[in-house]
Simulated assay, not measured.
Amino acid sequence: MPLKTPRNKRKNTSKKRKWSAAVTQNSDALTLQQRIFTKTDPAAIASSLKRSAQKSHRRKGTPFQSAMSMLNFYINRAGHNLSKHQLDILEQAKDELRRLFHRQPAAT
């Protein structure tokens, strides 16, 4: 049986690495505003996610679950590529999302 060469490996993994970008852009649960996660206002990010989650008829959970899930997904997948400043903004957006949905603040 022939061994895979590193070149073939790289070719296959490059396609697999981009699946998370496709999920963010083509989410089956939410239709997101373009470039929402690059905004610098946590309240704007949270309100856009809330609006998208409430309008969606394709989501499986509650609007809060869908919005928070998409935000966490982006944070986890973008991870090391996010600047500290943008990561802080997205973490603040989580708190703002909880406030908009009248949920308890996260335990620290």
Rank of each mutant, 00 (worst) to 15 (best):
R10A: 13
K11R: 15
L82A: 05
M1W: 05
P63Y: 12
Q104S: 11
P63F: 13
W19S: 15
S83N: 01
M1T: 11
A44T: 10
N8K: 10
K39M: 11
K9L: 15
K18E: 13
Q104D: 06
K84T: 02
L87Q: 03
L32C: 03
Q34T: 09
T38H: 04
L97W: 04
S48K: 08
D88S: 09
D41M: 03
N81S: 15
R10L: 13
G79L: 06
A93D: 03
R99N: 10
R77F: 03
R99G: 02
K15H: 11
T31S: 12
S47E: 10
A53E: 02
I45W: 04
S52R: 04
H85V: 06
L100F: 02
Q34Y: 00
R77V: 05
P2A: 12
K39Y: 06
A44I: 05
Q104N: 07
L90K: 03
G61H: 07
Q54W: 00
A53G: 03
S27Q: 01
I36L: 15
N12E: 14
A44M: 05
Q34A: 14
A78D: 01
L97V: 05
D95G: 11
V23G: 01
H102N: 14
Q54C: 11
S48E: 12
H80A: 13
H80W: 06
N12L: 13
I36G: 04
M70C: 08
A53T: 02
H57G: 14
K11D: 14
G79H: 06
T24D: 06
E91Y: 10
H85Y: 07
K9P: 00
F37E: 06
K16F: 02
F73N: 03
T13N: 09
R77P: 00
L97N: 06
T108K: 05
R99V: 08
I45C: 04
S20A: 12
T40M: 03
Q65L: 05
K84N: 03
F64A: 12
S69K: 10
L3R: 12
L97A: 08
R99H: 10
S27G: 14
G61V: 05
